[in-house]
Design a protein around this nucleic acid. Structure first.
Lengths: 196, 196
DNA sequence: CTATTAGATATAGAATAATGTATCGTTCCA
DNA sequence: TGGAACGATACATTATTCTATATCTAATAG
């Protein structure tokens, strides 16, 4: 019974097992009892919404409502980056960083005049801000931005700016030309519409 | 009580009301009783996981598990595109189209030799494939790809290819240079981590 | 202004199912 | 063999969900 929730519960179980967490350990973190978790996972009963949320939070997961049309996109996001290198940084916290960098570049263009390199940096940042970057990738971006801030007023800024532009472009290219979507997400979850 | 699920239930309620669906109408579509929905929405009791899934499915929503780190990114996706123009196409169904277009460009480069325009098309498609496009934007891309397919072997392909490259670039620019994230999503949902 | 109807949401009480406590059966390792 | 960790089970308690009915609001007729 409870066919709708099977998939979600199975996902949670997989993640628990993949993390090497026992039902007991999880029960302590989640505030449920081990007995409860056992019955839920084995399908003998069905959890209340709150119980399920507690469970998943203890596994570092969040229950979210997603419009059906967006489900494949979200699956892409989750699967693609989640498997590539375990830790994923997000869009929003970094957005401020990007916005600040964007303002910096615009200011530099205004003060010292526009240049091909600055244009390239501005453009590339606009791109990188859109796609979801891995931790490594984001760290590289952070470093480059920091460098730009440091050397912005320096006497020999030009070669540094060029180098930053090149590095950003390189990162951009590596992302654009990598094949994005793997064969299929492991999750089942109906996708709904085909084309249009 | 049931503090964890309040946010999710509130979201569902908002969406029901925004859609102009009554509790009774929803109860029929979801297979629950109106009484049930009333108590759930007013916080007098807490739904089972399956009941909640039934509810949300009837509202064209899907309950998904998202790694905490990805929550802001998913919120961006949902909020940004969902409000911009109601209908959202997803990542996966269009991926095939992009992949086919990519193969086409590579084939043309192989047959007729590489050109700046073809390079630009290939690059831009790589970008557009990444970001999530609105319906309008995606339709434009579709048209351009269709045109490319039609004129690929034509005698005067060159000017057409150039025009397609320009159009794609233009679309790309409009996306890259538009400020992406609005002030804040209406949804509360804790985000957890700040930076790193 | 009152009465009535219809559509909505809220409430009452019975039936059913989830949840906690305590315990049991296995397996693995000392 | 002992014990320690894991997952499963039994039963008491509490909460859910359903059927049926009540309340509320707005609109219309008398």
């Amino acid at each position: 019974m409870a066919y709708q929730s099977e998939s979600l519960i199975a996902q949670a179980r997989e993640i628990r097992e993949a993390s090497g967490v026992s039902q007991r350990a999880l029960s302590e973190r989640a505030g449920l009892t081990q007995s409860h978790i056992s019955q839920i996972e084995s399908g003998k009963m069905e959890p209340g919404l709150s119980s399920f949320i507690d469970l998943t939070r203890a596994l570092d997961l969040e229950v979210m409502l997603v419009p059906k049309k967006l489900v494949p996109a979200v699956l892409n996001l989750v699967k693609a980056r989640a498997t590539r290198d375990m830790h994923i940084h997000a869009g929003q916290p970094n957005d401020k960083r990007f916005a600040r960098a964007d303002r910096l570049v615009k200011k530099m263009k205004h003060l010292y005049g526009s240049s091909a390199d600055l244009d390239r940096i501005e453009d590339t940042l606009g791109f990188l801000r859109r796609v979801n970057l891995s931790d490594q990738e984001m760290q590289l971006v952070r470093e480059l931005i920091t460098r730009l801030e440091r050397y912005q007023a320096s006497a020999q800024a030009a070669p540094v700016v060029r180098d930053i532009a090149q590095n950003l472009q390189q990162l951009r290219n590596s992302i654009v030309h990598a094949a994005p979507s793997e064969p299929r997400p492991a999750y089942s979850l109906d996708d709904g519409d085909a084309d249009a």
